[in-house]
């Protein structure tokens, strides 16, 4: 099991770095080239959401991204330290059928849309949240034979 862990200050400019790192590690893990765009987008959405939660709740701790290469899958965990009032679970692939409300001033609408994009993109995704923070887990299948040596 090879793991890359990334901690970054909750600033929007660092989200691109997280996308680039995640895509690089995913490519090396053997995730199909055609899926790398989805990995990039999904991790960007998860990190943007975490940054938004930290900024809005004035949380100084960093956002944590853990990239794990397994035998058959590549997993990404994005964790925030924002306390959530309720727990949610999203495990229905491709279920984002309707467009959630969006607001150009930011806020809950964009947060919901980020989750809608993730659940629409990723077949294996789990969103959990509690008093200690939230966690988005996503994974994609790998083809080890095509992994970069």
């Amino acid at each position: 099991m090879a793991t890359v862990e990334l901690l970054f200050s909750a600033l929007p400019e660092h989200v691109r770095t997280a996308r680039l790192v995640a895509a690089a590690v995913a490519r090396r893990a053997g995730v199909d080239e055609a899926v790398l765009d989805e990995v990039r987008l999904a991790v960007g959405e998860a990190c943007s959401r975490a940054v938004g939660l930290h900024v809005s709740q004035e949380i100084s701790s960093p956002v944590r991204v853990v990239l794990t290469e397994d035998e058959k899958k590549f997993s990404i965990e994005v964790a925030d330290d924002a306390p959530h009032a309720i727990s949610v679970a999203v495990a229905t692939p491709g279920s984002a059928g309707t467009a959630p409300a969006a607001d150009d001033a930011g806020g809950d609408g964009e947060d919901d849309m980020g989750l809608a994009v993730i659940s629409g993109l990723v077949d294996d995704v789990e969103v959990s949240a509690g008093a200690d923070g939230g966690l988005i887990r996503m994974s994609w299948p790998t083809t080890p034979a095509s992994a970069t040596p």
Partner: peptide, 17 residues
């Protein structure tokens, strides 16, 4: 090259305006 939900939100905001 890249568009995420934040960008979608901005476009929806533009449409509203």
């Amino acid at each position: 090259d890249f568009l995420d939900s934040t960008g979608l939100g901005v476009l929806v905001g533009g449409l509203k305006r």
